[in-house]
């Protein structure tokens, strides 16, 4: 097999970047570059730990987990790209492309888990969403058993104001368990608010 083999995909997003670029898979790794602003990112094959395929908001994602725990996400693939990419990564990297099912049950209860700098929210052992804690600007405890993580200061203007974007300002979790169980069962509802 030639080391010069390369496979390219157009209109691929990297992470949460707003611009699309071209994704290139070679034996050396995965590269991504925008045509005009020349934003780019390279992940070396020697750093790969796991490769996943999952449904995201911007179509499908090739997710690369690297050895230091970091995660690189490439969005915008079509559903039908799966088999091609699975074969490509098998040829180039001798690694499987593992499909990852996300939770779309619509439930608001589950388990949280820290993974690197991300907080994952899992529902029946499937990921529902994840929060990049590096983006958080603060956190507080608005009530008993409650934790709020702030991502946007509502007083601040939007960076590059965009009407098409609904920004997540904060998220509040309710975490039972610090209240004695008997009290919970006796009273039915514990007054967590007020």
């Amino acid at each position: 097999m030639g080391d010069s083999e390369k496979f390219e995909y157009e209109n691929i997003y990297y992470g949460l970047e707003p611009e699309v670029g071209r994704l290139r898979l070679t034996a050396g790794g995965i590269g991504w570059k925008t045509p005009e602003s020349a934003r780019q990112n390279v992940v070396f094959a020697t750093e790969f730990r796991k490769l996943h395929w999952l449904r995201v908001a911007r179509n499908h994602q090739l997710r690369v987990t690297v050895k230091d725990g970091g995660v690189h996400k490439f969005d915008g693939f079509k559903k039908e790209d799966f088999e091609d990419i699975r074969d490509i990564v098998k040829t180039l990297y001798k690694m499987p492309l593992e499909p990852k099912e996300m939770s779309v049950k619509g439930w608001n209860w589950g388990k949280t888990e820290f993974q690197g700098s991300h907080l994952l929210f899992n529902v029946t052992n499937r990921e529902m969403f994840e929060l990049p804690l590096t983006q958080a600007i603060g956190s507080n405890k608005p009530g008993k058993n409650e934790v709020t993580i702030n991502f946007v200061d509502p007083g601040q203007p939007v960076v590059g104001s965009n009407k098409d974007v609904d920004e997540l300002v904060d998220i509040t979790f309710y975490i039972p368990g610090t209240v004695p169980k008997e009290a919970d069962e006796e009273e039915g509802a514990v007054r967590g608010e007020g």
Binding site: P154, D164, D170, I171, I175
Partner: peptide, 18 residues
């Protein structure tokens, strides 16, 4: 809900200029 000891998403706040 089927599990009162789970962790719950209690609130989400969004902002938009639209």
């Amino acid at each position: 809900f089927d599990d009162i000891n789970a962790t719950f998403v209690r609130a989400l706040t969004y902002r938009s200029s639209d």
